[in-house]
Design a binder for these strands. Structure first.
Lengths: 146, 146
DNA sequence: CTCAGTGCAAAGGATTTGCATGCCG
DNA sequence: CGGCATGCAAATCCTTTGCACTGAG
């Protein structure tokens, strides 16, 4: 056991709000994602905790996503990746390798970030969209795929 | 409106550069994408031009992507979407509906856009990544999905 | 003629689902 | 006890591929 006992509480609360339980399988998934430095594919999640079963992992990640606990991202390969929701960690962006689909995190200068935020708010207001958030990815080649 | 005959020439040139031909099937796909206001799924492309066959559409879009003529994007649903490459149109961003996966285009104030560009360049330089471009999406709900 | 491009049908593969069983509340 | 969660295996469905044929050069 380690850090952030509060994370578990927030997660439990969000699940409860959706009429869902914070079962041990879901707990283990959240634990894996918390330790990860970047979004993980489901095979990676399964590899990180062999006691998880594939179908339950898929099912539980879908439920955790609905509960607003995790976010699903899709890059260039055939695997979806999951990470903890931004408000459970910190706002950040992704460096995506266009060759292998792998992902690394990065952040922007706060000043620029808030300019961006403001501009996007205006865009959303002018459109018929209800904005929920934004996503900024830097696309390139990772060292391995260079 | 009519036409940009020059678009065809650029496309032909890029295909030739990769040792590929600009066949009629590929020509029809490019025509469909040129008319579209937003990225299209392959079913949408096929519906727009019934003379296209599914497997060739998949194959040709993959080839057009390699040739740098189109870009493949993935949103939240199960369908990949394609649009003409940015340098064949104009740099723009996407409003993505998190419910149905549909996409609309938008642009940013040029000043902000270039600040962003600069910042991302720095990020890339500091990482072990070779930057190829960036992607900024606004995620929300479209009018239809609420 | 040759070989890339095409279309059909069948295969591939990540993700989803049916069903019987186990466990939390 | 009742119902949701789980795990296995089978089904789903977008996408890819094998193969025979056609057409451009």
């Amino acid at each position: 056991m380690s850090a952030a006992p509060e994370l578990d509480e927030v997660v439990a609360a969000r699940l409860r709000a959706g009429g869902q339980r914070f079962t041990s399988g879901r707990r283990r998934i959240v634990a894996v994602l918390r330790e990860a430095a970047a979004p993980l594919t489901i095979p990676q999640v399964l590899a990180a905790d062999r006691s998880l079963s594939q179908s339950s992992a898929y099912r539980n990640l879908a439920i955790l996503e609905q509960a607003g606990v995790v976010t699903r991202i899709v890059t260039t390969d055939d695997f979806a990746r999951y990470e903890l929701a931004e408000d459970l960690t910190e706002h950040h962006h992704h460096l995506i390798c266009s060759a292998c689909g792998d992902v690394t995190d990065f952040s922007l200068r706060p000043a620029l970030e808030s300019d961006l935020e403001r501009a996007l708010h205006n865009v959303a207001r002018r459109s018929s969209f209800t904005a929920l958030g934004h996503r900024l990815d830097l696309v390139g080649r990772c060292q391995a795929c260079r």
